[in-house]
């Protein structure tokens, strides 16, 4: 790994200031970034740890009822304390392995937007709001393709707000070596309709399966899930073909609806 300076500020304002240096980069739990640095795929001049900022850690209910999770909150804490949104807590409890969950953060996962990560599916299916040091971004506007988000250079995710659904479930078909989702589907039923988000399948990263959303909004049952979407644009690799992933989307959506209903 190339060398870099290290800074660990204790406030969001200091972190933003530290990130003002050219080629400075934010460090969450480092569970993706550190392996990336080891491969010399990134060479920041400085890493700014977000792990020492108390205001960015914790879980609470907002005035509007939404579950608010600080950007530097580790997965293990979401798993233990997001009981108001059980499907989200369950998702957090199955990311990576226990040691990874002790370090990895929700903000880090969403900022990285790995096409097979779990949290992007939860955020998109919940219509979450990504709150940064400078603005609020709707999940529908936030995810912009594989490893690409609406975040500007030096912008920090300080909080993620999840509207709590009536029913929800996440089904992850685990790729056992990486423990990422080979394909994962998050289904969330709200009073005004159902949202279905798919991770691990598309070359464009996480996406909403709108056809299933329409069908499930009028009939929330596994039988209502449409047949598998087209395999065009799906990821094909040694672990699964595009057709296989497309098939999994329908299967996992049915399982998620059955588990949630």
């Amino acid at each position: 790994m190339y060398n870099f300076d290290f800074e660990k500020p204790s406030t969001v304002a200091d972190a933003v200031a530290a990130l003002g240096q050219e080629d400075a980069q934010a460090l969450g739990g480092g569970q993706t970034l550190i392996p990336t640095l080891k491969q010399r795929l990134a060479s920041p001049s400085k890493l700014v740890s977000l792990k020492g900022i108390p205001e960015m850690v914790g879980i609470c209910r907002g005035d509007d009822g939404a579950l608010c999770i600080g950007g530097a909150t580790p997965h293990v804490q979401v798993a233990a304390e997001a009981g108001d949104y059980p499907a989200l807590a369950a998702l957090a409890s199955h990311i990576g392995d226990p040691a990874v969950r002790n370090r990895g953060t929700i903000g880090g996962s969403l900022a990285n937007n790995d096409p097979a990560a779990c949290y992007p599916a939860a955020a998109l299916a919940s219509g979450a709001t990504i709150k940064t040091n400078s603005r609020e971004i709707a999940a529908d506007d936030y995810f912009q393709g594989m490893f690409t988000t609406a975040l500007e250079e030096g912008e920090i995710i300080t909080e993620v707000r999840f509207p709590v659904p009536e029913k929800a479930n996440y089904q992850k078909f685990v790729q056992p070596a990486s423990r990422f989702a080979l394909t994962g589907v998050f289904v969330a039923k709200y009073a005004d309709g159902v949202r279905v988000a798919v991770t691990g399948a598309s070359e464009e990263g996480v996406f909403r399966w709108t056809e299933a959303e329409a069908a499930l909004s009028s009939n929330f049952s596994a039988d209502a899930v449409p047949s598998a979407p087209s395999a065009d644009g799906m990821i094909g690799d040694i672990h699964g073909t595009p057709e296989y992933r497309a098939h999994l989307i329908a299967v996992l959506t049915k399982r998620a609806v059955a588990a949630a209903a």
Binding site: F6, K8, G30, S49, A99, V100
Partner: peptide, 11 residues
Amino acid sequence: AVKSCTMLAAE
């Protein structure tokens, strides 16, 4: 429990 190969010493 933490994987010490994936945490900076400075952290």
